[in-house]
């Protein structure tokens, strides 16, 4: 057993799969103490169907693991051997790259349609993707909010008929 802050991992026995955090798995892997099994969403067939659906359904995003970009990158840089031969690695890597590109262009298309301070639904966005658009999108929503709020303020004042004209403010 290996007690950690979050919980205890283990028991570690030879040839029995056990679920551990990625950092621990990579640390053990570097010392040659374990074999990493690729997460099941990284299966070639599943990635292919995911990509296909991502392409055919432009309205919404396919559910992907929240950190799929990060996990994929770490596994590909540190532990290429777990996917089998070189050709297999490349194929899975290409699929994920393709998935990233398709989703990215979808996000851009979605953002381009926004025109005003409205709520925008971005379901199933992964962490790195939302991080990428966060700053820009947040800023422009702020601008819109200011532009629309500013109008309402004095229009409401006019409607309630209060004498709060700017001259007496």
């Amino acid at each position: 057993m290996m007690p950690c802050i979050e919980k205890a991992y283990g028991p570690f026995r030879a040839n029995i799969p056990v679920e551990v955090p990625l950092c621990l798995a990579l640390a053990l892997y570097r010392r040659g103490k374990c074999r990493i099994q690729a997460p099941d969403w990284m299966d070639r067939e599943r990635l292919k169907t995911m990509l296909e659906e991502e392409r055919t359904v432009p309205q919404y995003f396919q559910p992907v693991p929240q950190f799929y970009v990060e996990v994929a990158r770490m596994l590909f840089t540190e532990a290429r051997a777990i996917f089998g031969s070189n050709a297999d690695v490349n194929e899975v890597q290409d699929l994920i790259e393709e998935l990233k590109k398709v989703r990215n262009s979808k996000i851009l298309d979605g953002l381009r349609k926004v025109s005003g301070a409205i709520t925008v639904k971005l379901n199933n966005l992964s962490a790195s993707e939302s991080n990428k658009i966060r700053l820009l999108f947040e800023h422009s929503l702020n601008v819109w909010h200011q532009l629309s709020k500013n109008d309402k303020q004095w229009q409401e004042a006019n409607m309630t008929g209060s004498l709060d004209t700017p001259a007496s403010m």
């Binding site: 851009l108 953002l111 381009r112 926004v114 025109s115 005003g116 820009l136 422009s140 601008v143 819109w144 532009l147 629309s148 500013n150 109008d151 303020q153 004095w154 006019n158 700017p166």
Partner: peptide, 26 residues
């Protein structure tokens, strides 16, 4: 707008930003 209370100014500003925003995103 706060002072002059132009009825169309706010809508005009948002519309301008909306058109320019598209290029910003892409």
């Amino acid at each position: 707008n706060e002072f002059l209370q132009d009825l169309t100014l706010s809508a005009f500003l948002s519309r301008t930003y909306a058109t320019r925003y598209r290029e910003l995103v892409s």
